[in-house]
């Protein structure tokens, strides 16, 4: 596969991924540039709305472009992706002010069954884990499974967090989890192998709304601690941007 090199954008490669998808990978050493490029390209593809292109799924350094092989083809979509990259090179990635979300969390106990395990593994106290988790703002890098989960770079723990040996069959909606160097909130109940350290009482997923989740990649999220007795006070409220 030929690499397409441009001065303004990181080098991008396009790989076949079956007869109905392509994988586009930005492969520079600059992770931020890779991330910005695949997300800008996803937005460009969305806005362009080419015939037979279903949509694009951007993550960290890659983008999956899905299409209908009855209407278009891998060859045509590849050419279209390259056109998008040339456009972006000319116009630059669109700038959009990130919105901020504030997320109340009850840590530990029944709400965060893995909190003590994570503390032990990190050789820190439970309080130190909570302090680190609430200490910074997180950029939402992409929407993941299940159901538009906000995938974020994790808190500044000393070590990566191992996944559970036996994944849970069901993790409740609102679960606040960490694994490896990543952090996430579960918008819907689903099986999960990440360590659950807390839970937010806010409703993240609204199946009656479009889009289903209120944030987009690039938005910023911050956790704050609430006592267990306040869980019910927040319950039923929706997660909304602070500004």
């Amino acid at each position: 596969m030929p690499a397409v090199s441009t001065p303004a954008l990181p080098p991008v490669e396009v790989f076949e991924s079956g007869d109905a998808a392509l994988r586009v990978v930005a492969s520079s050493a600059d992770r931020e540039a890779n991330w910005a490029t695949v997300h800008a390209l996803a937005e460009w593809l969305d806005a362009a709305g080419a015939d037979g292109v279903h949509g694009a799924v951007p993550t960290y350094d890659s983008l999956l472009v899905e299409f209908d092989p009855g209407v278009t083809s891998a060859r045509q979509v590849r050419a279209f992706v390259l056109l998008g990259l040339r456009q972006l090179e000319f116009t630059g990635a669109p700038a959009r002010a990130p919105r901020e979300f504030s997320v109340p969390v009850v840590y530990g106990g029944e709400y965060g069954p893995d909190l003590e395990r994570v503390a032990e593994q990190q050789q820190l106290s439970v309080e130190e884990i909570i302090t680190l988790h609430t200490a910074k703002s997180y950029v939402i890098r992409c929407l993941g499974a299940p159901a538009g989960s906000p995938m974020m770079d994790g808190p500044d723990f000393p070590l990566p967090v191992p996944r559970l040996k036996d994944p849970r069959l069901s993790v409740p909606a609102g679960a606040v989890s960490v694994a490896g160097r990543q952090a996430v909130i579960a918008p819907a109940a689903a099986p999960g192998g990440w360590c659950v350290i807390g839970q937010t009482p806010l409703t993240v997923l609204d199946a009656a709304a479009e889009p289903l989740v209120p944030y987009v990649p690039g938005d910023v999220l911050r956790f704050h601690r609430i006592p267990p007795e306040d869980f019910a006070t927040y319950a039923g409220r929706k997660l909304e941007a602070a500004r």
Binding site: S17, G18, A20, R23, P58, Y60, S62, L64, E66, C142
Partner: peptide, 11 residues
């Protein structure tokens, strides 16, 4: 380590 990425149906 592989970063999470979109996977096609049929993978």
């Amino acid at each position: 380590e592989v970063l999470s990425r979109g996977v096609p149906v049929g993978a």
